[in-house]
Amino acid sequence: MEHTAVSTAGPPAATGRSKPSKWKKYRSGYLFLLPATVLFILFLWVPIVKGIVFSFENVDFVKGNTFVGLDNFRTVFQDPEIGVSVKNTLYYMGLCLVIGFWVPILFAVIISEIRRFQGFVRIAAYLPNVIPLVVLYGLWRWIYDPVGPINAALQWLGLGQVLFMTDTHWSMASLVIMETWQQFGSAMLIYLAAVLSVPKDWYEAAEIDGAGIWARIRHITLPSIRNLIGLLFILQLIATSQGYQSQLAMLDGGPMNATMTYGLKIVKYAFTQQNYGVASAMGVLMFIVLGFLAVIQFRMNNREDR
């Protein structure tokens, strides 16, 4: 089926050739694909398959790997800290939605109406994205410090001191606020482009029909970007469910495992305890859960393209 479609679309010289010369004709084309194919197999497919194999093995660099059946998975389900890490991950994902998800949508709608300085506001909103992660960590440790600027402001307002990093009630939320500060600009600009592409005469027509400002936003702007909101929602869930870097860099999973996410637990099992088998098993379990989300994303992506 594919063949006939190709030969009719190809240059006229291709017609009437026999099969072996056809392969000769396309040989250089396949050579173009060779490097990428080798690299994809070597650095993506091999690790993915190895991960599944390792999850049933005890990985030992010196003595060689041994098959242990479901032992690794048993360890995962019996480790109470992994249960805690799943709860922390869900809490982190929830906080990212509550604190971070709606902010870019709100500002995209507001900023689309700005007549002057819009370029400046866009750049200002995006600038934190450009800051390297290590700078983000160093900077926000100082901002959250007991003698840092936020606590100075709280004291000036007559409020009590907040231990953003060491108080278990605050630590995860503090990380989410920090990440929202850094990442909100990119999502905002994506929404902004969508909001600005809504045809202006729709608003004109709605206004003539007596729709107020809020009604116009609710019935025209938001429905127009609904698919994009859904897509970014799924993308955020996929990203945050894997989150571990800021938890690792800022607090190393503490205080008292309050920021120990599932992703960080994988890292700890692998690179602190050198137990690559259990870590691989955790990866496989995560893959099963996230694969489900990825399928939803794929379907929404297709809808967005249409």
């Binding site: 993506l44 390792f54 992703g263 692998a270 870590a279 995560m286």
Partner: peptide, 19 residues
Amino acid sequence: FLMTLFIPPSTYIVPNFVN
């Protein structure tokens, strides 16, 4: 090629390192 996009990186970070 495209299928690898749907496999979240942190699920194979460990075997990637061993690889």
